[in-house]
């Protein structure tokens, strides 16, 4: 297979970026998109050209490191897929493929396809945890958790923190990211006690970090590689309302 690539290249955060055109050949359908870039990079290095800088680590869709906009979609056009999971057989032979970094004011480009995502850590620091210390705790079975609640929590906890929701959101909002954490912890008895303060502090931190607000476009849900649903955002809104009323009272 052969492809025509348009790849965003940018030397540094302040440097202007633009698309560069590359032709790649001898691509086998089993290759992943990132392996195709690896191959292209090998060729570039041999020519003495700086290779395309991009991030990835586990390459099996769980660490959340990789993240690019492929043909206009965060993590590519396939649903429930991370960038590293994209296989070349999903493209037409000879197709032009556009690759650019995640775009958001809170995700400044560091180099080529790498963006800075520290904002997501800051949002978790604002309360995305239970305040359980390391030490002796009640037996894990002492507090029963209804299976449905556990499954629901697990659905939300599957978030890999890749930031695709932010990249896809026309407002660069991190609502799905926040909502997933609120839903994960708030559904479990261990996380419930802090739910109100968590909902307030995490959404405030989200705004402080420069993420936008939610306009219910639901683009986040469409690109989420782990299939996290916008219904968790409604849940977050309820938690916020409850917390605000409680604060008022």
């Amino acid at each position: 297979m052969r492809f025509h690539l348009k790849v965003w290249r940018q030397e540094g955060p302040e440097a202007p970026g633009r698309f560069f055109d590359y032709d790649v050949d001898d691509i086998i359908p089993e290759m992943s998109l990132l392996e195709m870039l690896d191959k292209l990079n090998e060729e570039l290095i041999k020519k003495g050209t700086p290779p395309i800088t991009f991030e990835s680590d586990c390459r099996e869709g769980i660490c959340g490191t990789c993240g690019m906009v492929v043909n206009g979609s965060a993590h590519g056009p396939q649903p429930k897929t991370t960038t590293c999971e994209i296989r070349m057989r999903h493209f037409q032979d000879g197709e032009a493929i556009t690759i650019e970094p995640f775009r958001a004011a809170v995700f400044p480009v560091q180099k080529d396809l790498i963006v800075e995502r520290a904002g997501l850590d800051k949002v978790i620091q604002a309360g995305g945890y239970t305040s359980a210390y390391t030490g002796t705790h009640a037996d894990a079975n002492a507090i029963l958790v209804p299976k449905d609640d556990q499954e629901y929590a697990m659905d939300a906890a599957a978030c890999i923190g890749c930031g695709a929701c932010v990249a896809a959101c026309p407002n660069s909002s991190a609502m799905l990211f926040v909502a997933a954490k609120i839903a994960h912890l708030g559904t479990l008895p261990q996380g419930k006690p802090e739910e109100a303060s968590r909902a307030l502090s995490m959404t405030e931190a989200m705004q402080e970090e420069g993420f936008g607000a939610c306009s219910n476009h639901f683009e986040c849900q469409a690109v989420c590689p782990k299939g996290i649903r916008v219904e968790t955002i409604a849940r977050l809104n309820r938690a916020f309302l409850k917390a605000s009323l409680k604060r008022l009272a």
């Binding site: 906009v69 775009r103 660069s172 909002s173 476009h217 469409a222």
Partner: peptide, 23 residues
């Protein structure tokens, strides 16, 4: 605020769920 948070969404964006209405 939202425009400030998302000055650009890249040169080439395909929307999946956001319709003309929401945008």
């Amino acid at each position: 605020e939202n425009t400030k948070a998302a000055p650009t969404k890249g040169t080439f964006v395909t929307y999946k769920e956001a319709g003309l209405s929401s945008r």
